[in-house]
């Protein structure tokens, strides 16, 4: 049962990491990265590291997400509403 949960969590981690790098839309990529951060917090809880899980939830998902979204707004502001990509 635990093994199934671990495998599912690892699958979700890899998938969200992959999507945050490969999605054409940058806004969606940042949202996928925030999802990745929250899943990492779950992984830390599974590894018996509640300290890291707390920090990851507040920093990895919260602060980093705010920083990324803010930077995204600044980088896209000059070109009006046009979405662009790598």
């Amino acid at each position: 049962m635990n093994l199934a949960f671990d495998l599912l969590l690892i699958l979700a981690l890899s998938w969200s990491a992959w999507r945050s790098l490969a999605t054409p839309d940058l806004t969606r990529a940042v949202v996928m990265f925030i999802v990745f951060g929250l899943l990492m917090a779950l992984a830390w809880a599974r590894l018996g590291a509640p300290d890291i899980a707390l920090a990851e939830a507040a920093i990895g998902a919260g602060l980093t997400g705010a920083l990324l979204l803010d930077a995204l707004g600044a980088l896209q502001a000059r070109r009006g509403e046009k979405k662009e990509d790598a």
Partner: peptide, 23 residues
């Protein structure tokens, strides 16, 4: 990836991987 934001995202994914290996 060429876009700088994506490079930052990729570096963060890399870092999370290293942390997972460490623990």
């Amino acid at each position: 990836l060429a876009h700088l934001m994506r490079k930052v995202l990729a570096f963060n994914v890399m870092g999370s991987g290293a942390f997972l290996v460490l623990v």
